[in-house]
Design a protein around this nucleic acid. Structure first.
Length: 344
DNA sequence: CATATCATCGTGCGCGCGTC
DNA sequence: GACGCGCGCACGATGATATG
């Protein structure tokens, strides 16, 4: 009967705007990563440029006295993906299937990828239809190309070749340049998972020219929850796995931080106080509303005349309820303006 | 005592299953 | 076939413990 509910003070994030930037002098390379960067500056700078942006994030309250205000990792993740989506030809959620990159809508091997479609499809074609094609090649093809958009794209690249008639392997040009990457603001154990996936992709024969790993440093690191992957930790773990030759592809770790001036802890503290006060007031209203509705009901049913004594008549109660509801809707609107909404 | 790491808890999301 | 319910998993968040 009520569209209005009591509000919880838990799990509320303030809407916060922060300036994000890549900390260029802390970028870390492994396995000739720097050479790759110099060779493909234009392509890789697209990533860096997209990360230098203004983000709307969820700001949360922490129990920690030393750091009472923090940034919600999930909001950072979502927001960064949004920023990066302006990159030409970027794909999110990409899996490695038989050595080719296939973006899938569900959770997959890598957060994002920028790869050469033609050579990628040549590889896949060879796998399914080429000289040493798998017996079930056509089936495998159907499995991953049921998506009509991707099928159309495939046909565009493959129109020169007919599966049934062309019996050679397609020569895959070696000039292609493929990047796969991870945006990591998860628990540090995710770092191992990421490296494991990378090794798996290497073993599956994926052509990975650069692996880009995006994580936090500086102020951003301290504002995120304690166990979240950060630059120094990522360097340490990658170093170990590069030195022992587990990881042999070029790696570039891109650290990001936020501009100190765009983050004022006290402003958020005050905003939280304000929101809490408003939520309290709203919840008081809610109690009041319940009481009035009970009175109204009692009046309607005329069960207990004692309860309705202080109220003159039915109209009085109804009016009070209407006014209160309007007030409550107003308060909710104001509260929502302060709060972070992940669906916006 | 400050910082790093460990252990554990809490939450939201996707998925399967059943019901209407 | 839309919905809702429960379950398990992955992801964060945080207090506890180790380290130096």
């Amino acid at each position: 009967m009520n569209d209005l509910k009591k509000l919880s003070k838990k799990n509320k994030y303030l809407k916060g705007s922060v300036e994000l930037h890549v900390v260029k002098n802390k970028i870390q390379y492994f396995n000739r990563g720097e050479d790759i960067y110099i060779l493909h500056k234009k392509s890789i700078n697209q990533i860096i440029d997209s990360l230098n942006s203004t983000l709307i994030l969820g700001i949360n309250e922490r129990e920690k006295v030393s750091a009472p205000i923090g940034i919600n990792a999930k909001s950072l993740n979502t927001s960064i993906r949004k920023s990066m989506s302006i990159i030409k030809d970027i794909n999110f959620e990409t899996s490695v299937i038989n050595g080719s990159f296939i973006p899938l809508s569900q959770k997959s091997d890598f957060d994002f990828s920028i790869y050469d479609k033609e050579t990628n499809y040549y590889n896949f074609w060879n796998y399914c239809y080429g000289l040493e094609a798998r017996k079930k090649g056509p089936e495998i093809f159907e499995k991953y190309f049921s998506d009509s958009e991707r099928k159309k794209e495939w046909e565009r690249y493959m129109s020169k070749y007919e599966n049934d008639k062309y019996t050679k392997d397609l020569i895959v040009p070696s000039t292609s340049f493929n990047i796969i990457g991870e945006i990591q603001f998860g628990n540090w154990a995710m770092l191992y998972k990421d490296m494991f996936r990378l090794v798996a992709a290497m073993n599956k024969g994926a052509k990975i020219d650069l692996y880009v790993y995006i994580c936090s440093t500086g102020l951003l690191k301290t504002l995120l929850s304690d166990q979240i992957v950060y630059l120094d930790k990522a360097i340490k773990e990658f170093k170990e796995n590069v030195n022992n030759h587990n990881i042999t592809v070029p790696v570039m770790i891109i650290p990001i931080d936020i501009d100190e001036n765009s983050f004022t802890e006290n402003n958020y503290k005050n905003a939280f106080d304000a929101v809490h006060t408003m939520i309290n007031e709203y919840n008081d209203d809610f109690e009041e509303l319940i009481k009035l509705q009970e009175e109204k009901e009692a009046y309607e049913n005329s069960i207990d005349m004692e309860i309705i004594k202080p109220v003159k008549n039915m109209n009085d109660i109804s009016n009070k309820i209407d006014i209160l509801k309007k007030e409550m809707h107003k308060k909710i609107t104001i509260i929502n303006e302060y709060l972070y909404n992940p669906f916006e």
